[in-house]
Amino acid sequence: MNLRYSTLAIASALCLGLSTQAHAAGGGLLATGGVTTVEGSAGGGIVPWAVMSGYAEEGEWGGTVSLSRASVDDFNLSVTAASFSFDNRFEFSVARQSFDLSTIGGELNQNVIGAKYRLAGDLIFDRLPQISLGVQYKQNNRFGLPEAVGAQRDSDWDAYIAVSRAWLAGPFDRTWLANATVRATRANQTGLLGFGGDESDSYELVAEAAVGVFLHRSLAVGLEYRQKPDNLSFAKEDDWMTAFIAWFPTKSVSVTGAFVDLGDIAGLTSQQGYYLSLQAAF
């Protein structure tokens, strides 16, 4: 039985419940909650942004549920995630990742619990850009393979600070968004291969970035980049990149697709493929 279908059931129940009271949804502007990352935090696909999930403004609460899948040459990643946010200030998220090693055989599982706090600023209206502090606690459910390739521990914390800003009328009179994130982490392949390694077992600061443009109000395209540590001697770990398109037909639903380039993973070279994510927000 799985979390994925129960989450879906909850999602549809919530959507039904909410649609009967038209204005129960939070008062945020379309797309300002971003989409759901593979780690469950609001952001893009692979980078957590300073935005709060859903549409909760001051004194309101909101949240999201999502299903995502990345499929590259030799691996598949499935993520089920849910988040809760309130007061345009706090965000809590959970994500369950399962990583299929289609070529090597086997599967890796990880749970991620996240919290994010908006320190200052606003995505659009304040003089300061939106600045948020986040933590993610990650735990492997199966540590056999990570341990065998040199990972030092099966659970760990990541901490990050993210800065996000949108320009309503940027270049070409389009709305642009930029995000920069700095993360302290020891995770191997975001934690799917454990934390720390035989080559390095200390926290490292990595940079992550995203830039996007809204072609119109409900359709954005953009790029993301995520730097990663390289702690394990058995295989080189590469940075990740995506080119995404996100569609927000309404405030309740969004669909994100992307081309992803995950580089070399566990010795299998040049892992490229697609990413698809479905989100319900309330």
Binding site: G26, G27, G28, L29, E57, E58, G59, E60, N88, F125
Partner: peptide
């Protein structure tokens, strides 16, 4: 409120 402002934008 902030939500009122957003509603006006919409």
């Amino acid at each position: 409120t902030r939500s009122d402002f957003n509603a006006l934008v919409e």
